[in-house]
Design a protein around this nucleic acid. Sequence first.
DNA 1: TTTATTAATCGTAAAGTTACGATAAAAAGA
DNA 2: TCTTTTTATCGTAACTTTACGATTAATAAA
Lengths: 109, 109
Amino acid sequence: MGITKVDKFEAVINRRAELAKAFAHPARVAILDFLSGKQSCVCGDIVDELPLSQSTVSQHLKELKRIGIIKGEIDGPRVCYCIDGNVWKEAQQHFMETFDKFVETNACC
Amino acid sequence: MGITKVDKFEAVINRRAELAKAFAHPARVAILDFLSGKQSCVCGDIVDELPLSQSTVSQHLKELKRIGIIKGEIDGPRVCYCIDGNVWKEAQQHFMETFDKFVETNACC
DNA sequence: TTTATTAATCGTAAAGTTACGATAAAAAGA
DNA sequence: TCTTTTTATCGTAACTTTACGATTAATAAA
């Protein structure tokens, strides 16, 4: 099918999966890494940073915007992108909760 | 195409994306959440926890095993699953580095 | 030995993802 | 106004993912 049964899971679970999806492709990891390393908006040069075509990069940026983890603002002929601090924190919180839940014991395989 | 150009990115970037992929589907989030909440291996009843068929769950478990974040051990007719502590830590480290890199400033959109 | 039980694998259908070139749109600059 | 620059969108191809039922394999239980 290729269709994820989102309606069968709780909203938190789905949101967690969606936020993880932002980081689940090397191009998006590279984009987010690039943006998070800057102290201000990045205008224009994201495509030059990636080994992919302009349309493909644009598609990945669209997906990141859909998830909400980045914001884009039109600045003349260019577009300025940056991390959305609130969603970034939301993601961080989700992952922290996830990782903190596991406590290793020796009762295991 | 649907084929990710893994060869165009650094190994760290690709590994980071792969680890995120473990959390990028609600079924896998639910499985990992279930396993990380247990103090020992979970034998058998993962399928009952999920609103998906046995074969679909098995497929997700296979993917998680491929990534390395869970381990499976045969125990009679059942299989016991648990989180792989080392890979769990590896993922935690990757995400911590990722999230810590971004420092919010007011110079932005 | 025969019969459950449990999980993996197979086959397959449907939908999603990734990628690119071409085209369109929008604004700046000549 | 015309051209250039930049990004989004369209169209499309190829591959991947998700999902399920059916089957197989392996072990335990009767």
